[in-house]
Simulated assay, not measured.
Amino acid sequence: MNEVSDILIVEDEPKIAELVSDYLKSAGYTATHIAHGDEVLPWLEHHAPKLVLLDVMLPGRDGLTLCREIRYRSPQIGIIMLTARVEEIDRLLGLEIGADDYICKPFSPREVLARCKALLRRMESSEEQGPEGAAKQGLVLDPQGWRALADGQDLGLTAIEFQLLSVMMQNPGRIYSREQLMEQMYRDHRIVSERTVDSHVKKLRKKIADAWPTREIIHSVYGVGYKYSPEPR
C-alpha cells in the first residue's frame, strides 16, 4: 500500500525548497523534497501525495514533461507549477498539459501556502460530493467541488477551465470578449495574453466534446469572443 504524503516539492534550488517545506510543515502539512526530475516518477510509484509543487526547470526530466506524465498516471493528484520564466508560452503549456495552477518566482511562502490550501480544499470538496449530483442530466456545475458534470460524467476540468465555463454559463447567449473573460478568470491581476484564453477554450471544448460528441455549446463569435449556448446548433 502506498505511503501517504500531503505535498511533494520538486525543486532543484535547495534554499527555495527548504523555505517552502518549512512553511508548509509549520501549517501542519507533511512535505517531501525531490531535487532531480528523474527521481519523481519512481518515488510516486511508492508514495501518494495529494499535491505536487513542480518547478518547470529541473535537471533530468523537466517540469512540463513531468506534469503531463503525472496527470496521465495519477489524475487525482493536484499540480501547481513553479516557474521563473515569464514568457507566456511557459504559462500556457503548464496549464495546457494538466496543471491546476502556477506560481511565478520570486514568490512568498505565504502565497504558496495559500494556493496549496485553496487547491486542497477544492479537491477535498470534490471527494466529499455524494452520488446525487452525478445523477443529474445536462450540464451541471458543482461549485463546492469545482466540477462540471455532463449527464453525470465529470469533465475533469482544471480550476481555470471551471471558472471559464462558470462565467459563460451565468449568462447563456451573452458574448464575452477575451478581455472580459480574463478579468473574471484571473482576479489576482496576473499577466496573461488573449492566446491563453483561446487555449483554455479549446481544451474546455475538447473535454465537453469527449462527453457530448454531437453537441457544441461554446461558440466562437468572430472578432468578438465567445458565448455559451445550451442548445446545439
Score class of each variant (00 low, 15 high):
83 T>K: 06
83 T>V: 05
92 L>W: 13
78 G>R: 07
66 L>K: 08
76 Q>F: 10
73 R>N: 09
63 G>M: 06
91 R>H: 10
84 A>T: 04
65 T>F: 08
72 Y>H: 15
80 I>Q: 04
81 M>T: 03
70 I>C: 00
72 Y>D: 14
87 E>R: 12
67 C>M: 03
95 L>T: 06
69 E>N: 04
75 P>A: 01
77 I>E: 03
89 I>K: 13
80 I>A: 03
82 L>T: 07
87 E>N: 10
89 I>E: 15
94 G>H: 06
61 R>M: 14
82 L>M: 07
86 V>C: 11
84 A>S: 09
71 R>E: 06
91 R>Y: 05
92 L>H: 12
77 I>D: 05
72 Y>Q: 15
75 P>G: 03
95 L>G: 04
90 D>Q: 09
86 V>Y: 11
92 L>E: 13
92 L>C: 12
81 M>V: 09
89 I>N: 11
76 Q>N: 11
96 E>I: 12
82 L>N: 04
66 L>I: 04
75 P>T: 02
78 G>H: 07
92 L>N: 13
62 D>E: 01
93 L>N: 15
70 I>S: 00
81 M>I: 08
70 I>K: 04
82 L>Q: 08
85 R>C: 09
64 L>E: 00
72 Y>K: 15
72 Y>A: 14
67 C>P: 01
76 Q>D: 14
71 R>M: 01
70 I>M: 02
69 E>Q: 11
67 C>R: 01
74 S>K: 11
84 A>V: 02
75 P>W: 06
78 G>D: 04
80 I>E: 01
88 E>C: 10
89 I>F: 12
79 I>V: 05
90 D>A: 09
86 V>W: 13
67 C>K: 00
93 L>Y: 11
90 D>M: 10
81 M>K: 02
83 T>L: 00
62 D>P: 00
90 D>C: 06
93 L>P: 08
67 C>F: 00
67 C>Q: 00
85 R>Q: 12
92 L>P: 08
91 R>V: 10
65 T>S: 08
77 I>Y: 08
93 L>Q: 14
85 R>I: 12
78 G>L: 02
87 E>F: 11
76 Q>K: 09
89 I>Q: 13
78 G>S: 08
65 T>M: 08
95 L>C: 02
73 R>L: 11
89 I>M: 10
63 G>A: 07
92 L>I: 14
75 P>R: 06
86 V>M: 10
91 R>L: 12
61 R>W: 12
83 T>E: 05
67 C>E: 02
80 I>M: 06
90 D>E: 15
89 I>A: 11
91 R>C: 08
94 G>V: 01
64 L>M: 01
86 V>Q: 15
82 L>G: 05
89 I>R: 14
85 R>V: 12
61 R>H: 14
79 I>T: 04
91 R>K: 14
83 T>W: 00
91 R>P: 03
79 I>R: 00
81 M>C: 05
72 Y>I: 10
67 C>T: 05
69 E>M: 08
